[in-house]
Amino acid sequence: MGWTAPWYSTADSDEALKTRDGGDLRCYRQADEQVFQTYETK
């Protein structure tokens, strides 16, 4: 699709970032050293 944004998986992340049942969609944005959750749907 020509997107230039990097994509990451939370599969090996801390419990706070993991999905509950594998069907969630969450979006994060990193600004400097901080990470913000910008969207979530179930």
Rank of each mutant, 00 (worst) to 15 (best):
M1C: 07
M1R: 06
M1S: 09
G2R: 11
G2Y: 04
G2C: 07
G2Q: 03
G2N: 02
W3N: 08
W3L: 14
W3C: 14
W3M: 10
T4P: 04
T4H: 06
T4A: 05
T4G: 07
A5C: 06
P6F: 09
P6S: 11
W7G: 07
W7Y: 15
W7L: 15
W7N: 12
W7T: 15
W7V: 14
Y8T: 13
Y8F: 06
Y8D: 14
Y8I: 15
S9N: 06
S9E: 06
S9M: 09
S9F: 03
S9W: 02
S9C: 10
T10C: 03
T10W: 06
A11C: 10
A11P: 09
A11E: 07
A11T: 12
A11L: 12
A11Q: 12
D12P: 08
D12Y: 10
D12I: 04
D12R: 15
S13F: 15
S13L: 14
S13I: 08
S13D: 15
D14C: 04
D14L: 11
D14W: 11
E15G: 10
E15W: 13
E15S: 15
A16Y: 11
A16W: 13
A16I: 13
A16P: 06
A16L: 14
L17P: 08
L17G: 13
L17R: 11
L17Y: 15
K18M: 07
K18C: 04
K18A: 07
K18D: 07
T19S: 14
T19K: 14
R20I: 15
R20A: 14
R20D: 01
R20E: 09
R20V: 15
D21S: 10
G22V: 12
G22M: 07
G23V: 12
G23K: 15
G23A: 15
G23H: 12
G23P: 04
D24L: 09
D24G: 09
D24I: 08
L25G: 02
L25T: 10
R26K: 12
R26N: 07
R26E: 05
R26H: 05
R26G: 01
R26Y: 02
R26T: 00
C27I: 09
C27T: 01
C27W: 04
C27D: 08
C27G: 03
Y28N: 03
Y28A: 04
Y28C: 06
Y28I: 05
Y28P: 05
Y28V: 07
Y28T: 04
Y28E: 01
R29M: 14
R29C: 09
Q30E: 10
Q30M: 06
A31F: 00
A31G: 02
A31E: 00
D32G: 03
D32T: 09
D32F: 02
D32L: 08
D32E: 11
D32N: 08
E33N: 11
E33S: 11
E33I: 02
E33G: 02
Q34D: 10
Q34E: 11
Q34I: 01
Q34T: 06
V35M: 01
V35C: 00
V35D: 01
V35G: 00
F36S: 08
F36I: 05
F36D: 10
Q37H: 00
Q37R: 07
Q37K: 06
Q37Y: 02
T38M: 06
T38C: 09
T38L: 06
T38V: 05
Y39R: 02
E40Q: 03
E40H: 00
T41V: 03
T41D: 10
T41A: 05
K42L: 01
K42Y: 04
K42T: 03
K42Q: 04
